[in-house]
């Protein structure tokens, strides 16, 4: 009885979680353009999507922003987590405290703060300012993620390598980075997710020529969305789902191996 109740509850929550995206996917195959009633099956909107340059451009911009900010913030985050772990310096505590700010303050404050500084420095709003803003809120998450692995790491290995004559560079690239890989990867994944999901900070820091998908959808929600947006969302979700399935299967295999052991 208890089990049934639990399962019913789980199913209800999952319905809540999946309802909105299921509806969007369904309507991407709908012959009517109004997103109101399902009238018949068509792939028409997928063809339309290929013609919609504004939408495709915004998708490309989104991917560029997410790609660059993930790579840069992962690189800086990894180096910094290591640096903060390894070295001590004046003001280290302050740096450590300030790092949490992008994690905890409401995004809107970070958005307007960055906007004001861009204005102060007379930076032209566009792709560059947008990417900089994304890097800004991703770095702390990468640092936290890498740090959690660093704390469990055995520093003796590095010492041994050093005693055996390995250079600092060799130690970092051949020993430290591979050991930190799980943290780096989960940090990168987090950065990617955050960058793709962000609306508020992008809203304030993007400029002409930096129209990203969320900003495009925001203006379209107000003026009327065409179903080719649904088609785009469906394709993106398909890709995300395949990637996630692969990563889950890999992790499950690992779990299984541990079970056997």
């Amino acid at each position: 009885m208890k089990k049934i109740m639990e399962n019913v509850y789980l199913i209800l929550v999952f319905i809540f979680l999946f309802l909105p995206i299921t509806v969007l996917i369904l309507f991407s195959f709908n012959t009517s353009s109004l997103n109101i009633v399902f009238e018949g099956f068509t792939l028409h909107w997928y063809q339309d999507l290929l013609q919609n340059r504004t939408l495709l451009e915004s998708l490309v911009n989104t991917l560029i922003v997410a790609g660059i900010s993930t790579i840069v913030s992962t690189a800086i985050g990894t180096i910094s987590a290591y640096g903060l772990h390894k070295y001590s310096f004046k003001g280290k505590n302050l740096v450590n405290e300030l790092l949490y700010i992008p994690v905890v303050i409401p995004e809107i404050v970070l958005g307007i703060a960055l906007l004001s500084v861009y204005t102060l420095l007379k930076l032209e709003l566009g792709m560059f300012t947008l990417i900089l803003a994304h890097i800004c809120f991703c770095i702390p998450f990468v640092i936290i993620s890498v740090r959690s692995v660093l704390e469990g790491m055995d520093s003796h290995i590095e010492e041994v390598a050093s005693d055996l004559g390995a250079s600092r560079f060799q130690i970092f690239t051949k020993i430290t980075i591979p050991m930190l890989m799980p943290g780096i990867l989960s940090g990168a994944q987090l950065a990617l997710t955050l960058s793709l999901d962000d609306v508020v900070i992008s809203y304030f820091t993007a400029g002409p020529g930096a129209n990203t998908l969320p900003l495009q959808v925001y203006s379209m929600i107000k003026t009327g969305i065409t179903p080719d947006v649904n088609a785009l969302i469906t394709i993106m979700l398909g890709i995300v789902f395949i990637l996630l399935t692969i990563s889950t299967v890999v992790q499950l295999r690992r779990l299984k191996k541990e079970d056997v052991r």
Partner: peptide
């Protein structure tokens, strides 16, 4: 054409004056 939109005159003013001169 890089096309962006606003939905009130005040927003237009804000966008033009907070962006670097020459943006639009």
């Amino acid at each position: 054409v890089n096309y962006s939109t606003y939905s009130s005159n005040e927003e237009c003013l804000a966008k033009v004056s907070s962006a670097k001169e020459g943006t639009y």
